[in-house]
Write a protein that binds this DNA or RNA. Structure first.
Lengths: 151, 151
DNA sequence: CTAGTTGCAAAACGTTTGCATCTTA
DNA sequence: TAAGATGCAAACGTTTTGCAACTAG
């Protein structure tokens, strides 16, 4: 269960914004706000959750802009997609490297898991299949400790 | 890269149909056709692909019925869901136990992978997180051998 | 200034639902 | 013959798109 340090996150935000600029995209307040929300959130939000979170501070924000910005971030491989248990798509923009997630079927929370030796797994898959592995998605569903004790 | 033997598959089809009946559901030609397609296919089809595959032989088949039958199979845990690279949801009804899949980003084919020691992984996740793991989804994306040689 | 970005509303998409008709047991 | 399943079409929620107005560089 991993959480980056605050200054690490701030540092990455700057790097991501710089990359977006370097790729020729312009910086608008909406774009910065969405990228900031994605990079800082530990909650693995859906697009609508990002939108609703930003709405009070950015009343002119539109859902379409959030969609477009998430697509841009995905293009630059600065977010990864994951399946929650509400059936919808959620996003991890805080750690964009492929890593496993754990979804609680009780309360819906999504946490990161630090699994070592994933590379070994990838090598094994390569050896078995001959595929050149580009990416992966490893997600678990279960009941978190708190929800277990509540039962 | 796993393929069940033909008689194993036929045997499982009978078992699944029996289970469906035991759960109080009726047997209609449409239901049998969809379940058969799911259990026999190695292609990991989408719902629409199942529908289109059956349409010539069952011209009265409706998409809604395929949706309902897949939902029923999912209820009975006789199919598992997986993410393809067309963005849509695909299904594995031939091996309904959670197992990894490999999606070719070149030709779109989806194959099963036989990975041992997945249980160890699950135990490690349990130890790290305290979650009671219920299920998981492990999928890889890459370029298959044939698509690699074509490049 | 002008090309890129936004917000809106409409369109497109996949999936679900209500209901009259038909079918299984 | 009664409960359940089907097929249709309408409804639904989510995501994408076209476009006029706006704005960053």
């Amino acid at each position: 269960v991993y959480l980056g340090r605050v200054d690490e996150v701030a540092e990455r935000l700057d790097r991501v914004l710089a990359r977006v600029r370097e790729h020729g995209f312009r910086m608008t307040p909406q774009r910065v706000a969405v990228i900031r929300a994605l990079v800082e959130s530990t909650a693995h939000p859906s697009i609508e959750q990002v939108y609703l979170q930003l709405l009070p501070e950015y009343p002119m924000m539109s859902l379409a802009t959030v969609y477009k910005t998430v697509a841009l971030m995905q293009e630059l491989e600065e977010v990864i997609e994951l399946a929650a248990d509400d059936g919808g798509i959620h996003w991890d923009g805080r750690r964009p490297d492929p890593h496993p997630h754990l979804v609680c079927t009780g309360c819906g929370q999504i946490v990161d898991v630090e699994l070592e030796r994933i590379d070994e797994l990838v090598h094994k898959v390569l050896a078995l299949s001959g595929f050149g592995i580009v990416t992966r998605r490893i997600d678990f569903w279960g009941v978190c400790a708190r929800c277990q004790s509540r039962e």
